[in-house]
Design a binder for these strands. Sequence first.
DNA 1: AGCACGCCGACT
DNA 2: GTCGGCGTGCTC
Length: 615
Amino acid sequence: MNKIVKVVVGLPIEGPFDYWVDETLRAQIAVGKRVRIPFGGRKRIGYVVGQADKSRFPGGRLKPIFSVIDATPILNDELLQLTREVSIYYGCSWGEAIETSLPKALRSGMTIDLPVTENFLGQKTSLHQIILLQDLNRKQGWDFLSENIRQSIAAGQDVIVLVPEITVLNFMAEMLKKISDKVIILDRKLAAKEELNNWLMAGAKEAKIVLGTRSAVFAPVHHLGLMVVIEEDHQSYKQEQSPFYHGRDVALMRAGKNDCRVILENCAPCPEVWWQAKKGTMKLLSFSTEKSAGMQIVDMTDYKSRKSVLISVPLRNAIEKTVRAEGKVILFLNRKGFSTMTKCPQCQFILQCPRCETNLSYLYAQKKMTCGRCNYRADLPELCPQCRSSYLRSSGIGIEKLESELARIFPKYRLGLYDRDTKNLPVQFDILIATQAILRLQNQFSVELIGAIHMDSELNHPDFRSAHKTFSLLIQLRQMTKEKFIVQTRLPENYCFKSAAKMDFKGFYREEIKFRRQLGLPPFNHLVSIIVRAAQEKAAFEQVNIFYRKMQDTLKRGIMVTEPQPDVMPKLRGKYRFMILVKGKSAEKILSFVRTSLKGIKRKSGAIISVNVDP
DNA sequence: AGCACGCCGACT
DNA sequence: GTCGGCGTGCTC
């Protein structure tokens, strides 16, 4: 019965693979344990997913496993099933899904001493219910959340709370410690040893709160009662490498298996999620604002002619009034650094990243040119590197340039900067000039006035989520101001601004859903994006077209394929990128279509194809 | 993902 | 003649 084990590995190949188990190892074998195996001529770690008496492997005699690593399985049935489901949905191998679910210490084969605990999979412990919590009132929203968490803990159940990133995690940790003294933190950025320790504590028997980033959705808790996803649509929940999973969606999968409750929290929910609530799959719970700060839209088309006018008259007046009354101001500009383009006025040469071909930004504080996509850095050249006859001129506005403009306009005001790399909020300031990184602190402080310098850059992105992203930014910024919110735009008639000004959520989602329906975008279809990348542009281009032609030939009903186009990032880290979008009702059907199309096509050397479900 | 096997150009 | 290019295919 246990002569043969079925093993999967953390590689993009399906398996499972059969191995022979020597008699001396048979007693140790169990599903969910790690084993050391010979694989493709080298030693690897494999994960036992099954046992058998005989193998159907046609290749003759099986290789024997070297050893069994774990005394107790590190994966219980629930996590085995969950990772299996994740692998099917996102189109990766089971082994890859298992590997992303584990702390790095365990992937590297470290041995551990794990106590034996049973898990409660399949036992109906609570009502499976999904709540979409729209929390525009921090007090009531928090009361609701903490009450739910408290109830689960009191019932002896575990709670998993997912947060988008570390600042929110630290803040939430303090809040959650008021509810329970057992708050376990899980984050891939922890040191290997600490990560493993916390992972082990997450698996302990007593009820606890596991607080973590994306990967904490796989926390090995045994009696899951509630999952909370804070800022449900945050970008960081989507893994940008294979497996391209979304933390929120895996949370929903996991909750479905365990019959546990889910609370998805967001001020301006993702339209896909909003639609679920509208259809009744989820319950929408809205706590409205006690008092909403006034929002004023300033039409900047009038300012077009006058050069270098960043601050409109109404905004300037509001800043003066606020600072005079000893209030604080945030000016929002979603662009790091000083300038965004550096050009030679003589020969028109533009400084670009050698790997991404994007214009380099200048970081004034660091005196460096940098690429916003990769981590390329260079010094600012004295003269034009091409014609050597002129100094370079910079244009394009980042927060550092805005700071210098403001220093000119308001020489007496204290100015501060805040972006992704800012560690601490400036201690004293009258005006804080910030990128969207400021939203990390949205629950931690607020100001009297927020001015958005131009909100249009987001809206002009060729991304079907851009309208919602803009709306969401507007709503979140508005929540951070106590008195006034001024938005400068050249698109004042756009529904994002109009509905945000009126706090008209229904209006916004009605428009957005209409737009999504017309174009057959989520939630009405699933999207799968296929990115073909290669160092040689020709290789990438030819590969994507080979693939596209094959897809055309084998096209199925209900599946739509767009023509290949350069990706939003046409070149990244030295690789040219082309994209195909596939649309269809079911992600699984799209994926199986993509798989069959992929089979037997001619492969161009150096071209890499990656498949991203729900990009 | 690696690594081995396999079929066409410049070397001692 | 052989060394080696990377194109193709497999890993129990």
